[in-house]
Design a binder for these strands. Structure first.
Lengths: 196, 196
DNA sequence: GCATATCTGGACCGATCGGTACAGACGTCG
DNA sequence: CGACGTCTGTACCGATCGGTCCAGATATGC
């Protein structure tokens, strides 16, 4: 609701969002009580409702935070993507990251099914986040197209969308099966369709 | 908990599961109260706790019901799949179905992110459902392989997995964007990787 | 050092949650 | 028709939910 204007306030708000990111991610939004958020962030209801109008408003802040985190993690490898091998490394990194975390999911994808349908503001926020991610990917893919290692007859944004769909679907199926195999297969197939 | 032994009992249990399927699907499991389920199914708490141990037990029944529904819808087209064009029709049908329903999601996929992580029995039930679906697809794909229209160097189950991942990821991204475009792109790309 | 605004923590509220208890309706035997 | 197991409906419970309120701590400007 009210933006913090002091360092202490910014710190409190930040701790709340961080704790909410973590709790929402591995327990789910609906299953996480606001008291758990305040307990985990060493704050109270007073602070929470000082900085956020209500729970959906907090969820919105979490969405933006997760988008920023994801983009920040991706932009490094995406910006300096110059050949097809770099894209394969990107896919391998995705599989490796999924292997490491537990339970390994996409912070954005996990939020979609939980909030995207009954709250349009949250859906739009997630849509915007994916759009930024897709654009970052498309920039690199366009580079590959210019050097002839990616399919030239498609909009790079469409090729990026294919990769993101394969990633999200692969992560979802890998979560159900308990193996990274589906993610591996899905990304390999998507690369097959995107490259050359 | 106790299986019904009369027609009236089976009818009540059936109405409860049907109502729960619908409510869980378009409001979410956590967001649906048991009183809403009893109200929508014209029953009471007495019946609900006569046939189900607790809420997770009801969710388990819903998972099985949704698996059966999905398989039943799919088996028709899957069983008589004889050439590559039939697989393309399968993909087109998926896009068309997604276009019709609102909000169009996969009944199984929607349940994954909501219940798969914190309840292993539910995760296994969903895993089993996807396995049956994948096998049904694989049977048709193996047929295509024998006639040389599908990639022969892969296990048909892996090719089926690729299609399911593309479908689930495409549905998820389509839900966020509000268009069937991502699903269309993802399935086309998967077909490209699976056929010939 | 006083006034003012920001920030903090927790007690508290009504509503709703999942779950229980129980009294009675129903159907099917002898 | 009476007895018995199945099935039904609802009143009710403690716990927890999102959200309010407010008194006091903390900082900043004059």
């Amino acid at each position: 609701m009210t933006a913090p204007s002091t360092d202490r306030g910014r710190s409190s708000r930040g701790r709340i969002v961080d704790a909410a990111c973590e709790l929402f991610y591995d327990r789910g939004v609906a299953a996480t009580g606001l008291s758990e958020v305040t307990a985990a962030s060493q704050t109270g209801k007073g602070q929470l409702y000082h900085y956020f109008r209500d729970k959906p408003d907090l969820v919105l802040a979490v969405v933006h935070a997760q988008v920023d985190r994801t983009l920040q993690l991706q932009q490094g490898i995406l910006e300096q993507m110059t050949d097809a091998q770099d894209l394969r490394v990107w896919a391998e990194d995705a599989v490796r990251a999924h292997n490491a975390g537990r339970p390994a999911r996409c912070p954005l994808g996990a939020l979609v099914t939980e909030v995207a349908d009954h709250d349009d503001a949250l859906r739009q926020a997630l849509d915007g986040g994916f759009a930024r991610w897709r654009s970052a990917l498309a920039v690199g893919i366009a580079r590959l197209q210019r050097q002839g290692t990616a399919r030239g007859d498609c909009d790079p944004h469409d090729l990026a969308e294919i990769l993101l769909c394969a990633y999200e679907g692969g992560v979802l199926m890998s979560e159900v099966r308990g193996t990274t195999r589906p993610l591996q297969l899905a990304l390999d197939a998507a690369l097959l369709a995107v490259l050359v």
